[in-house]
């Protein structure tokens, strides 16, 4: 049974269809990357999952049961465009948001104290939000998102506006929450962080889902049987003789004392064949199958989807 399922979601706005028959499935404890260019429908999908808006058609299941308004307290959501009441004190505000998520006043205060201590911001409790910097306010927002220990966490571009040190802090907190059992949806353009922390991804483009699955499987799928052999520069090599008819030369670049040759398999031969041919001709530094980065896959898929 999947942890969270959205099935055949359709959502129309006045002049366009924001989501067209989109289905996604989240395994439990996944860090699920929701990818796609601007305007693809990611935020609309997230708003449907958080029940901010309803779908025109389609069904949603949380742990096998249809999603109901009471599930709002089991979800924590950090929107891309986020803010706080400027004139309200940090502590009061965090308390208010926590209580709206169903925590009792007492529990909320205990939890908040613990988080404030963890982030070393105890002194902020009585400060007004307008006195905080943007990064500081975002820390408070992060705390209010995770405070009620939601089973499902949704972060929309969580790292925008943070400095690298806080990005690292946040990344570790997110992974820690996953270890503690939370399932996470993570919407972003930043492919670097996707490779780093996501276990699964879905790519949405032009209101439709193009691809979904475990990140390694997807990268494997888009690998096109290319191999990179890196050797020390030295004696001239007869490359065509070495590749033979089984391999096709894709690129050959020399940088300093290192020469990278990328070859694509053209016939069904073991990958070792190539290695054997180079073995006595050159000083091999490395030999690997080329796995495309998420960035490459993203660009490739979005472009071919035009």
């Amino acid at each position: 049974m999947s942890f969270f399922v959205a099935r055949n979601i359709v959502k129309n706005y006045a002049n366009h269809r924001a989501l067209d028959d989109v289905s996604i499935e989240l395994p439990e404890r996944a860090v699920y990357g929701l990818l796609g260019p601007n305007g693809a429908g990611k935020t609309t999908l997230i708003r449907i999952i958080t029940q901010i808006t309803g779908p025109d058609s389609g069904t949603l299941f949380f742990k096998g049961k249809p999603l109901v308004p009471a599930d709002m307290t089991r979800i924590g959501y950090l929107p891309e465009e986020r803010g706080l009441y400027k004139k309200m004190k940090v502590g009061d505000q965090a308390l208010y948001l926590a209580r709206l998520k169903g925590l009792s006043r007492h529990d909320a205060i205990t939890q908040l104290k613990a988080w404030f201590e963890k982030f070393e911001i105890q002194g902020w409790w009585d400060k007004k939000v307008e006195e905080l910097s943007k990064g500081m306010a975002q820390k408070v927002q992060f705390i209010t998102t995770v405070l009620h220990k939601p089973e499902l966490l949704i972060f929309d571009e969580p790292f925008s506006g943070f400095d690298p040190i806080n990005v690292e802090l946040l990344k570790n907190e997110i992974l820690e929450l996953r270890r503690q059992g939370a399932t996470i949806i993570f919407s972003t353009h930043n492919m670097g962080s996707v490779e780093e922390i996501c276990s699964h991804i879905a790519l949405i483009n032009k209101s439709r889902k193009i691809v979904e699955g475990p990140i390694n499987t997807i990268r494997e799928t888009y690998a096109n049987d290319s191999y990179r052999i890196s050797i020390k520069t030295g004696p001239e090599l007869d490359i065509p003789a070495l590749t033979g008819s089984e391999f096709e030369l894709i690129s050959d670049q020399t940088e300093g004392s290192r020469r990278d040759i990328i070859l694509q398999k053209a016939a069904d031969v073991p990958a070792n064949t190539l290695l054997n041919r180079f073995l006595d001709k050159a000083d091999i530094l490395s030999y690997e199958k080329v796995i495309p980065s998420m960035n490459d896959i993203f660009i490739k898929l979005v472009k071919s989807n035009v």
Partner: peptide
């Protein structure tokens, strides 16, 4: 303030 999206994910 953009706090509204956080609020309506907690209460209708």
């Amino acid at each position: 303030n953009r706090i509204i999206e956080v609020l309506v994910s907690s209460i209708k």
